[in-house]
Amino acid sequence: MSNSFSRRAVAAGIGLGALAAATGAHAQQHRLELLNVSYDPTRELYEQYNQLFAAEWARTHSGQQIHIAQSHGGSGRQARAVIDGLRADVVTLALAYDIDAIAQRGLIARNWITRLPNNSAPYTSTMVFLVRHGNPWRIRNWNDLTRRGISVITPNPKTSGGARWNYLAAWAFALRQPSGTPDTARAFVQQLFRNVPVLDTGARGSTTTFAQRRIGDVLITWENEAHLAQNEFGAGQFDIVYPPFSILAEPSVAVVDANVDRRGTRAAAEAYLRFLYTEAGQDLAARNFYRPRDAQVLARNRSRFPDIELVTVDDVFGGWAQAQRTHFADGGVFDQITARPRA
């Protein structure tokens, strides 16, 4: 007995030592490794894209192997993790503000948004509705979501990027109605969130709530996520409804300067993001229902992307910094309208 116990203790000591050595030696390995910290619905896109890029990298770098690890979650939560020390080489998040938050902590250069074309957003998307097959509640537009008895599924704007786009799209819709004012918009969004029974932390959680657990009459989600859910769960389960009006969502990407400089991965990380803008990258994005920036690729895939009226955050809200401060910061409008009246 005495022997086995001391042996165990030694084994534990060796285990800890090996662990420290393993993490230390990580950076010196020859095989290149990148970590892409992304938001929720991009799981399938980047799984395919990483293979495409690895092949391209090997072809142009005399066969060098590159492995891209993925981490997914609500966009805000992921930004928080990078700030707390998650060693992302690149972040591919749901909106510019989350990357700004990382930049404010000095991990990314402040001018990141101008370093790549199109506001550093290689693809765009918009927010659409996913309803049960046949659209039994005849949901066509944003004002249908505030009807009494309609149950709406959306993630929490505090943690999810998609949810912030949802919220702002609803707000913009209410604002442009005849006699729309910030006050009517606020009342409209408040009414909408009264119809929300569950607030998941990320877009994928909401999709599972709606599609797998069958809660809710309508899911407000990314265009790509709606198509993915339709494909995953088979035809005849859900219909996608394009409202006549929605918001232009620009999911942004950036190299995390502090991390790539330390790990010596800058060249690969920059190539990884630039390749998103090539025809191959754009084509893959389009096949995964992200709207490509490349005019030719978009033209080829026009039938996938119905032409609806899209407004931008800059036009309606004066930019993300402003929108974040007014609506989603602690004590902001979202907190005010979802606060329960005190008993």
Binding site: L16, L19, A20, A22, T23, G24, A27, A81, I83, D84, G85, L86, R87, R105, R262
Partner: peptide, 27 residues
């Protein structure tokens, strides 16, 4: 404690030791 913004974060960072978001943190 050990996150990049935590109490010991800057110190660990100097020696390039990762505790959080690594196997060490999980252990």
């Amino acid at each position: 404690l050990y996150g990049a913004r935590g109490w010991f974060g800057p110190l660990l960072d100097q020696y390039d030791i990762h505790v959080i978001f690594s196997v060490t943190g999980v252990v």
